[in-house]
Design a protein around this nucleic acid. Structure first.
Length: 490
RNA sequence: CGGGGCGUAGCGCAGCCCGGUUAGCGCAUCUGCUUUGGGAGCAGAGGGUCGCAGGUUCGAAUCCUGCCGCCCCGACCA
């Protein structure tokens, strides 16, 4: 066990907290539920963001920015949307402070706003009130916009990255002439998220649609990707919503079609957040700290020189600098940690904690032999290589480690995925084994609620790839066409 | 909002029940020397409105009252 980190076995949520803090990703701030994202944590987010942004642009989207504050009246326009978010909105009511006689600061009651402003929990309403001005003809469509922003949801209970009151995310908001186009967009973006999760985060996901009760407020259909964490719980890692004409109707957004008819616009919205960092941690990390997939690691290779004197360090630097150059030219990020204020063992532990995929160590012994020691974070394997050509070994390792982490997570998910054919069996699995359970369900909200109340497990989604299979609902015995995915979730 | 817990050095805690020298320990920090292939060792040093306000007392970190803040569990959570 690493210093100061609980093991997953003894206390999973403590382990998660310890990793976030000790790996220097984030810390709590003076505002409950609002975290400071520290440089190392933010660097991971920047890498995620860069890749997602590229993928959005490749699928034809553009970035824009809409305001943080939303007039309260906008929220009233879409009934189910306000139902969904009303209970967790922060509201701005005044615009000025004043100093009191005893030197304190208080809200100036004379500076009350005519209409309160909501700090966005999501931006559908402000965006659709804007789209009304932009859309008149079928020629104005589609509109394919994404924004990178912060949003705020006044959550009762928060956890670093997984559920914070304020969080960073991206939200795509698209407008289309036809229903089929909006549906295609919704599906396309879920595919983008799934590809990002699996190829970049090395985290296998299950794509599917949400049941009615778990749908986004105001959506006709919500699609999600669900990943399994190391405690067997599910984490919703991204959602894509088909909004139908709900927001177009609420904000009166119509276009004139080719045929000269007035039609309401069709919509989608989709988002992922800094929660993905929480997912990344819980999917791969171990009791020694963070394990990062090479594609998202801020530092991919760290080099630790082992030296006694400054002359030693100079000799090592001379040998290592060309290697650093070669690695960088291969697009690999390298840190040469030549601090003389910490000893090698300290550095080894530190970079393990921070999840750096590959560590090189080189000392006088190696200089004599023309070798270098290489350690993998994912397997802890340590091996000495000829220094000549080490850059190629590392370059190949980047792919190998990325694949290995993915396969490990996939294997874990497979080992913890079960089928239940009776409710008794289902309850037993959820209680004693945890993990994912595929089971038949009659499609009603009542049954879903009953299962949730009795087991705490919910339907994560109705997987796209679940085969057609005649069965009966494990609770009510009514007929069912396919199994759905149940799990306890974050 | 209900149940439980906590507030003492930068961090983690002991001391409180049973009031009494100068409030202590570990980690971290700083200085020096020795070290450096898996979180160094030794010696020394600095650092405190004991959450806040009142009360009891010759005397309060300790007892009493009020307030504030935080954490955990639950309710809640697209």
């Amino acid at each position: 066990m690493a210093k100061g980190i609980a093991t997953r076995e003894e206390n999973y949520s403590q382990w998660y907290n310890d990793i976030v803090i000790k790996a220097d990703l984030a810390e709590n701030s003076g505002v409950r539920g609002s975290m400071v994202i520290k440089p190392y944590g933010f660097a991971i987010w920047e890498k995620m963001k860069a890749q997602l942004d590229k993928m959005f642009k490749e699928t034809g989207h553009e970035n824009a920015y809409f305001p943080l504050l939303i007039p309260k009246s906008y929220f009233a326009k879409e009934a189910s949307h306000v139902d969904g978010f009303a209970k967790e909105c922060a509201v701005v009511t005044h615009y000025r402070l004043k100093t009191t006689e005893d030197g304190n600061i208080e809200v100036d009651q004379n500076a009350k706003l005519e209409e309160e402003l909501i700090i966005r929990p999501t931006s559908e309403t402000i965006i659709w009130s804007t789209y009304k001005k932009w859309i008149h003809s079928y020629r104005d469509l589609p509109i394919l916009i994404n924004q990178w922003a912060n949003v705020m949801r006044w959550e009762m209970r928060t956890r670093l990255f997984l559920r914070t009151a304020e969080f960073l995310w991206q939200e795509g908001h698209t407008a289309h002439a036809k229903s089929s186009e909006a549906i295609a967009e919704t599906n396309q973006m879920l595919e983008v998220y799934a590809e990002f999760a699996e190829k970049w985060m090395a985290m296998p996901v299950i794509k599917g649609s949400k049941s009615e009760s778990e749908r986004f407020a105001g959506a006709l259909d919500t699609l999600s990707i669900e990943a399994m964490m190391q405690d067997g719980k599910a984490l919703q890692a991204g959602t894509s919503h088909f909004l139908g004409q709900n927001f177009a109707k609420a904000f009166d957004v119509k276009y004139t079609s080719k045929e000269g008819k007035e039609e309401f616009v069709w919509a989608s919205s989709w988002g992922v957040s800094t929660r993905l960092i929480g997912a990344l941690i819980m999917a791969h990390s171990d009791d020694k700290g963070l394990v990062l997939p090479p594609k998202l690691a801020p530092i991919q290779v760290v080099i630790v020189p082992i030296f006694r004197s400054e002359e030693d360090l100079e000799k090592i630097s001379e040998k290592i600098n060309p290697i650093i150059e070669k690695l960088r030219s291969l697009g690999i990020s390298v840190k040469f940690d030549n601090r003389d204020t910490y000893r090698p063992g300290h550095k080894f532990a530190e970079y393990e904690l921070k999840g750096v995929p590959v560590r090189l160590a080189i000392g006088m012994r190696d200089l004599e032999n023309g070798t270098i020691e290489l350690a993998r974070r994912d397997t802890f394997e340590k091996k000495t290589y000829e220094i000549e050509g080490i850059e190629n070994v590392i370059n190949n390792l980047m792919t190998e480690i990325q694949d290995n982490i993915f396969n490990k997570a996939l294997k874990f998910r497979e080992e913890n995925t079960h089928k239940a054919d009776s409710y008794e069996e289902f309850k037993d699995i959820i209680k004693n084994k945890s993990g994912f359970v595929y089971a038949h369900w009659d499609g009603t909200i009542e049954t879903e609620e009953k299962i949730q109340e009795e087991t705490k497990a919910t339907i994560r989604n109705i997987p796209f790839d679940a085969p057609e299979e005649d069965g009966v609902c494990m609770v009510t015995g009514k007929p069912s066409k396919r199994r759905v995915l149940f799990a306890k979730s974050y």
